[in-house]
Amino acid sequence: MALTETMKPRERVMNALAGKPVDRTPVANPTNVATVELMDMMDAPFPDACRDPELAARLAATGYTELGFDSVMPYFTIIQESSALGCDMQWEEKDNWPTVRMYNPIWKGPDDIRIPPGFLEHPDNIAITRAIEILKRELGDEVAVIGKTMGPWTLAYHVFGVEPFLLMTVDDPDMTMRCLDRLKEISVLFGEAQIAAGADALTFPDHATGDLVSGDYYRRFLLEIHREMVERLSVPLILHICGNTLDRMDYIAQTGMAAFHFDSKNDPQAAMDTVAGRIGLVGNINNPETLYARGPEEVRQEVFRCLDAGVGMVAPECAVPLATKLENLIEIPRAVKAWHESHDE
């Protein structure tokens, strides 16, 4: 049976984030779907598209105009506010993501943490807030505009370096909490700026991944902070943590976040069973093995697996590989529609 869409993409996404009924499962991109092909198409290459609001908006819009997703996301990386804090950056070229040189940290402890004057006016933050304003103006009635603000755990990796920060968690848990408490103010500040610019929702990446730390770490260090973020940021939040997270999904489900964007290392059905309706799930099409290396048929099968499990919003598991073929990304919304055509009465 042909699928009849009765909602605009924005309404579809916002309803899904609110746990309300939708006409079909939305397809979102809480992290990033920019690819080299799209950069070439729009003449908006990295790293310029990360630092220029016009280019960022132009490239982000393709998530809707070229791929048919229900949301757009102009923050392609995880480093914009870290650049504004003064981290040592490697901006790279079109075919690679910009990265913080974490081996060269800028701070050592909580007393070093200072939000620089004019933080929100830093060009790398302005690139995001102005891009959101442009997208809101041009596409805001139609599509959900999602922003992104880094959580304190991710910021800690950037400003302290991964190893020094993880050692701090063992050596001095109280100091670690003081650091996280100060860093979370940066998350709130940048998040509020994006909300003021028009963001309908915010992705909240905070990489306390099972590949690095235990589920108990998440409970001890982040659960309360994430609850506080829900209280303080006035739009739906989509928590994003890469890697194995099944052992902490029960805690994540207690945060009050609207949704959790989860990795393909976690089985969708097991994830659904764990969260048991307490939080929406977004995900989890595999990037390196499926979207990057396979074809549309394999993409379709993964989309079906998510939908069969009841995942509420379909998305790539994380920022897609920049060399991903467009036909694979376009297949995601196609597959969602095909699944609904064969399942909806």
Binding site: L166, V170, V213, S214, Y217
Partner: peptide
């Protein structure tokens, strides 16, 4: 075996 994670390995390595 996921009994310990990276922080605990780092302190052992130290």
């Amino acid at each position: 075996d996921n009994i310990i994670f990276v922080p605990e390995v780092l302190v052992a390595a130290r």
